[in-house]
Amino acid sequence: MFKRLEHFYNSKPFFLIVMIRIALFLGLALILFILGLMIGYSILGGGGSPFSVFSWEIWQKIFDFIQ
């Protein structure tokens, strides 16, 4: 019985499935992070356009405020 499980976990399709799941998780995390930045800046921060959070001037203000 353990030989079958060992063969399954060492097979290429299992490795491929795990890599696809990891890639989907990281992609979803990145998308949610970007959406969180946009919502946090435009709604909670009162910054106006949600896409303006990606401008370098905004990040420069944030970095200057932290320092």
Rank of each mutant, 00 (worst) to 15 (best):
M1G: 09
F2K: 08
K3H: 07
E6T: 15
E6Y: 13
H7V: 12
Y9M: 15
N10D: 11
S11V: 06
S11C: 10
S11M: 05
K12A: 12
F14C: 11
F14K: 13
F15V: 10
F15C: 09
L16K: 15
I17H: 11
I17M: 15
I17Q: 13
M19V: 14
M19G: 13
I20K: 08
I20C: 11
I22G: 04
A23Y: 07
A23I: 08
F25G: 09
F25C: 05
F25D: 01
G27P: 01
G27N: 03
L28I: 02
L28R: 00
A29F: 04
A29C: 04
L30W: 05
I31T: 10
I31V: 14
F33K: 09
I34H: 07
L35I: 04
G36D: 03
I39H: 07
I39M: 06
I39D: 01
I39R: 08
Y41L: 03
Y41G: 02
I43T: 02
L44Y: 12
G45Y: 02
G47R: 04
P50G: 05
P50F: 09
F51A: 08
F51Y: 14
F51C: 01
S52A: 14
V53F: 04
S55R: 10
S55W: 05
S55K: 14
E57S: 10
W59A: 07
K61T: 08
K61F: 06
I62L: 07
I62F: 07
F63H: 08
D64A: 13
D64C: 03
D64K: 03
F65E: 14
F65V: 10
Q67T: 12
Q67P: 11
Q67I: 12
